[in-house]
Design a protein around this nucleic acid. Structure first.
Length: 827
RNA sequence: GCCGGGAUGGCGGAAUCGGUAGACGCGGCGGACUCAAAAUCCGCUUCCUGCAAAGGAGUGAGGGUUCGAGUCCCUCUCCCGGCACCA
């Protein structure tokens, strides 16, 4: 109480009260029966956090609050909203931290999870704590392993030998998606190439489907484009160039190249193989062998960053070998060079220096022939090329294809090579298969047993989970195998097929496998005998709204699409896209940079919530800027939303106090202007919240409150009550408190309490119309809404300042936009 | 280099279909209440000229379309994100 006898807003008290009540009454939780037959299901998903030792950071809270606001809005509109949360607790991140502090992850993670749980409750998310997942719980990873087994049986998981990305610091292989510009995404160490047999998921089989479906998804543009770029489809041809023997005749061997410019084949004056290409040995002549092998050794030593630098001069050596250009019939030199990569296309190219910048640079440096085979329209084809010509044009120096347009040339030359048996059209993708093996400890063991007689065998489903044993010495090493390979009593087993002695796979799977299906599990956590209940899964999925960070655009969001498609093809799901709608939120910036420990600009949420309350912190975060673009965290800015919520509290209690005192005026009809503003606000907020326009919605609510309290006037119930549900998504505890104070017994979130918009009540009777003379505002007039031009013009001409500007000039034209402006065009 | 998103007061940011640029908030200035302070409340706050009335300029730069452009078109600069010797 303050000295007026009215209550003061103490956020901590209000929030504790409602968090306890939501918990006790199960306000946000679903029973299995409710999950089975919801009235109007809406699945609101957010990206489950990795439970770090530091606790929730502002970025987490920003992400969760945005999703929670959206979920709560839909609930207030009468939907049955399922909004689960969980913990992505396996992985290198936790393991490295455990190593650093010398605590076993099995002891560390539960503490972090407990702390995160406390913090997540404190921020007031509408989480269903009865349906959480923890990826490190055997009851969860049993089914992660089950997913692997399904893919293995379908031939979508396979063990392959080949070049892999090896992080020398994390001491494990990484998927392509986890290598950012040649660096490990976890620790920024330059990644090396190693040859190791690994488990792969054949995501490339799904490349075209992953690409095509993007068109149909309601996703943030930036995320869709990131996936498109990552899949990287290019159309072209795979062409074959016969390798020549010392006498210049064709041998059996052929170099396969992928090109997007088959039309330029007559200009292919040399070939380049990647240094690691398997044919290098065969084409190298004895007199070039020493040089070639030295070059290969040099390339092997380089990490990915050094190798893929594009600003350095290209290097390479001649192998001494030749191929025949099937178009010209001429022998052309075969080189190896750093600018051709083994893991794209076929690892070999036909070099067309006349029409490819890289080939031009290389040919110039090593004095290799440059031939023009494309000429732009109206250009002299005999002009020597001073740089590679990439543009459109017609073919020249191309035999019977001369004068053909390049586009027509592409198909004509492919068709001809196909007849010759030397090529065909081909589509190539940048996307690589997903390497899921990790030579680490903290993950679900890959459920495979190696038997000398039967080969790799999947662990039978009834034997799942393959439990990760507690191992004290879990430090990774450079051996290329997991620490589990040190635990003989664990990996020694018998073959499930023949019963002979056999050995378990000792690698664990990628953390991204854990998160590739967690959203499928949430509504199914009540079942321990199956991963997915068909009825419940069909009811709740695909996810209605997914909100999260764009840093997972090509990681989690690509993998989970693939796993969903695969599970659909295997009959476990009846949909193939997991998320109907995905929105990427922006980043919070403070002092000009992303918050990071090294920059020292991190905001620790706990003390702020302590001082201002979760409601204020939530509202402030949502008010910072457009949610999809992020915002600039200014420490002083929190006072705006704090003052707003205090005023809301005060205004509602003013009404309650007036009613209690028997003041009939408190129940009076709303003021006309206020009611109009109310309905305009309802319209605006109802449109903007589902579009994630949180900052403008809060601004509209502030504006409304300013109208209600204008000049210090007293509010009436009809003006205040409809505002409460509109602030509820942002400030749920305060909304509950005030809803109760206004006499409602049930939770504001139980029931469709969103206020109804009445268009008739939002209409303005009079409007301000700007009066312009030649496009410059010279005054304003007040007219009835939809007033006709005659009336408006008369009023405008009566306006003193307007009259002055119309003196002595001729009005040539009058433009009238009802309710907006009147423009006199004079000359 | 290619793809996507941006650039608006001292600051964060608004502006529906091309129609009064700067809503809302922070900060600042002034005032009320107070012995005083905090809290709260009220008013002002794009820049320039002006006592005022008013006038001029103004949404990264330059051009264009239009009665009218932050918004549409062309050219350019810079910033953020994705991809990148990708053949």
């Amino acid at each position: 109480m303050d000295n007026d006898g009215r209550r003061t807003y103490v956020p901590g008290d209000v929030e504790r009260k409602w968090q306890e009540r939501w918990e006790a009454e199960g306000t946000n939780a679903f029973t299995t029966d409710e999950l089975r037959s919801p009235e109007n299901p809406f699945y609101q998903l957010m990206m489950f956090p990795y439970p770090s030792a530091e606790g929730l950071h502002v970025g987490n809270i920003y992400a969760f609050t945005g999703a929670d606001v959206h979920g709560r809005f839909h609930r207030l509109q009468g939907k049955t909203v399922f909004e689960p949360i969980g913990f992505d607790a396996f992985g290198i991140h936790s393991e490295n931290f455990a190593l650093k502090v010398g605590v076993h992850p099995m002891d560390l993670i539960p503490k972090n999870v407990a702390n995160f749980t406390r913090q997540l409750r404190r921020i007031g998310g509408m989480f269903d704590w009865d349906h959480t997942v923890d990826t490190t719980d055997p009851a969860y990873y049993k089914w992660t392993q089950w997913v692997f087994v399904q893919l293995f049986r379908a031939g979508l998981a396979e063990r392959r030998d080949g070049a892999v990305n090896w992080c020398p610091s994390c001491k494990t292989v990484l998927a392509n998606e986890q290598v950012i510009a040649g660096l490990c995404e976890r620790c920024d160490t330059p990644v090396e190439q190693r040859n190791l047999p690994q488990w792969y998921f054949r995501i490339t089989d799904y490349a075209q489907r992953l690409l095509d479906n993007l068109e149909t998804l309601d996703w943030s543009e930036t995320t869709r484009k990131a996936q498109q770029n990552w899949i990287g489809r290019s159309e072209g041809g795979e062409l074959r160039f016969p390798v020549l023997d010392a006498g210049g005749s064709d041998t059996e061997a052929q170099v396969h190249v992928f090109t997007t410019r088959p039309d330029t084949i007559f200009g292919a004056t040399y070939m380049v193989l990647a240094p690691e290409h398997p044919l290098v040995d065969a084409v190298t002549t004895p007199d070039h062998r020493a040089e070639v092998e030295a070059y290969q050794a040099e390339m092997r030593k380089l990490d990915l960053v050094a190798r893929q630098k594009t600003d350095k001069e290209k290097t390479g050596v001649f192998t001494g070998g030749f191929c025949r250009n099937p178009a010209t019939g001429e022998p052309i030199q075969v080189w190896i060079a750093d600018y051709v990569l083994m893991d794209y296309g076929t690892g070999a190219i036909m070099a067309v220096p006349g029409h490819d910048e890289r080939d031009f640079e290389f040919a110039t440096k090593f004095e290799l022939p440059i031939v023009r085979v494309v000429a732009p329209e109206d250009a002299d084809a005999s002009t020597p090329l001073e740089e590679a010509y990439i543009g459109p044009g017609r073919l020249v120096n191309s035999g019977r294809f001369d004068d053909m347009d390049v586009e027509a040339g592409k198909s004509a030359i492919i068709a001809w090579l196909e007849d010759e048996g030397l090529g065909e059209s081909r589509i190539n993708y940048r996307l690589h298969d997903w390497c899921i093996s990790r030579q680490r400890y903290w993950g679900p063991p890959i459920p495979v047993i190696y038997c000398d007689a039967c080969g790799p065998v999947a662990v039978p489903e009834e034997d799942l989970p393959v439990v990760l044993p507690r191992v004290e010495d879990f430090k990774p090493d450079d051996s290329g195998v997991s620490p589990l390979a040190r635990v003989a009593e664990w990996y020694e087993t018998t073959c499930p097929e023949c019963g002979e002695a056999a050995r378990r796979e000792t690698d664990v799977s990628d953390t991204f496998l854990d998160s590739s299906w967690y959203f499928l599990r949430y509504p199914n956590t009540d079942f321990d005998d199956k991963a997915l209940d068909a009825g419940i899964t069909g009811t709740w999925l695909p996810v209605d709204s997914y909100i999260g960070g764009n840093e997972h655009a090509v990681l989690h969001l690509m993998y989970s699409r693939f796993i969903t498609m695969a599970l659909k093809d295997l009959g476990h799901l009846d949909f193939e896209e997991p998320y109907k709608q995905f929105r990427a939120h922006g980043l919070i910036i403070r002092e000009g940079a992303k918050m990071s420990k090294s920059k020292g600009n991190v905001i620790v949420p706990d003390p702020i919530i302590e001082e201002f309350g979760a409601d204020t912190f939530r509202t402030y975060l949502m008010f910072l800027g457009p949610y999809e673009e992020g915002g600039d965290y200014q420490d002083e800015g929190i006072y705006g939303p704090f003052g707003f919520l205090k005023r809301v509290f005060d205004t509602a209690h003013q009404v309650v106090a007036a009613e209690a005192a028997g003041d009939a005026a408190a129940d009076a009809a709303p003021d006309g202007d206020v009611e109009r503003k109310l309905h305009q606000t309802i319209r605006q907020v109802s449109e903007q919240v589902p579009a994630l326009g949180f900052n403008t919605s809060i601004a509209a609510l502030m504006e409304y409150l300013n109208t209600v309290r204008a000049g210090g006037r007293s509010a009436v119930r009809a003006e205040v009550e409809p505002m409460i549900p509109m602030i509820a998504p942002f400030a749920p505890h305060l909304a509950e408190e005030l809803w109760e104070a206004l006499g409602h017994e049930a939770s504001i979130f139980d029931g469709a309490n969103w206020p109804e918009f009445d268009a008739a009540k939002a209409v303005e009777n009079t409007v301000t119309v700007a009066v312009q003379v030649n496009g410059k505002v010279r005054g304003t007039i007040e007219v009835a809404a939809e007033a006709d031009q005659e009336r408006a013009e008369a009023l405008a001409r009566a306006e003193e300042n307007v009259t002055r500007h119309l003196e002595g000039v001729t009005v040539r034209r009058v433009i009238y936009v009802p309710n907006r402006l009147l423009n006199f065009v004079v000359g």
